[in-house]
Design a binder for these strands. Structure first.
Lengths: 174, 174
DNA sequence: TATTGTTATACTCTATAACTATA
DNA sequence: TATAGTTATAGAGTATAACAATA
């Protein structure tokens, strides 16, 4: 069975995005590629674990995480806004989760166009379990990082999130 | 034309992944979600600009960036390792770029199974232009961030990249 | 037997767009 | 007219797997 080619790569073993820069490049660029490769490393690991251990995906996990905060459920339109994807995609993910009994749609009698999605009891149990694992994975990945670095990262990323300036043309005029 | 629903969202206007945590959560988890939402914000912007201004995608840009460092070209297998995707995907992306005249395959007479992919003159020109824009976008997005924060971010992310510990089961046994 | 690259296939996620039912 | 949600479609990106040619 040597004709099979499963993807088996240790990311630390190969150069990554950051290696595409040279010291002469702007610090911003090197910073960005370093941040991106950190994120990709961690995100890939989480996606892979969600897949192998819970047979699910990050968007599905995220949708359930949104619902978990709102015991009464959320309107599809709000889910779409918070998750920054279009309506049709929320319908699709909700369909999958509903088929597995993890969420349910509740029709709204006041406005019969809209419905509310919420976690079922089974969905709440499943999410709690996944969220615990998810947290363990993250903790274990950050394990070697000194406390001061953690604090500093948290603070400066907070600044960055505020300061990041999106190009005007990519935003709606209003 | 109100039945059309184009995705037009200002990411700063809605809660994001980070808002799924509460102060009682572990700092690691809050840190991770904050980092992820920073990255997603910036990455989404870059993908969108690559699409609208250069009609291309991030994986295609990344493949060209790899080749740009190696004037002699790279083997498909090495591209696959560096970009951490399977062989078949490299074939697909290379096909697209070759069709547009941006890269070319050179057969290797010593080992007739393998070939080398390299940028054409047109590809080098195109990449230089895109890379300049890409750098401008990044610079402009980091514009409001104080210098000290930049330095600190760069250092601590460097640490993180070294310390991030992948789960043993996700790596090959060797 | 193992490696290089290609092809075929399937699946998820995404966007655009048109549609239905309702407001 | 506008909104909530659905459906249809298309395309990118990914993985798994089998294959041919070559080593």
């Amino acid at each position: 069975m040597n004709d099979m080619q499963t993807l088996v790569v240790d990311p630390h073993q190969y150069p990554d995005l950051e290696s595409l820069t040279v010291p002469e490049d702007h610090l911003d660029l090197r910073l960005w590629l370093r941040m991106l490769s950190c994120c990709n490393l961690i995100e890939t690991e989480i996606r892979s674990r969600l897949r192998t251990e819970y047979d699910t995906t990050l968007p599905r996990f995220d949708l359930m995480a949104q619902l978990q905060r709102e015991p009464g459920g959320m309107k599809m339109t709000d889910l779409s806004r918070y998750m920054m994807v279009t309506n049709g995609n929320i319908t699709g993910i909700t369909d999958q989760l509903e088929k597995e009994g993890l969420v349910e749609r509740i029709r709204n009698s006041a406005d019969r166009r809209s419905s509310v999605v919420r976690l079922t009891a089974k969905g709440r149990r499943a999410f709690r379990k996944m969220a615990r694992s998810h947290e363990e994975w993250v903790l274990s990945m950050f394990d070697g990082l000194p406390d001061t670095s953690r604090d500093v990262l948290f603070e400066t990323l907070g600044q960055l999130k505020t300061f990041v300036r999106l190009q005007p043309s990519s935003r709606p005029a209003g």
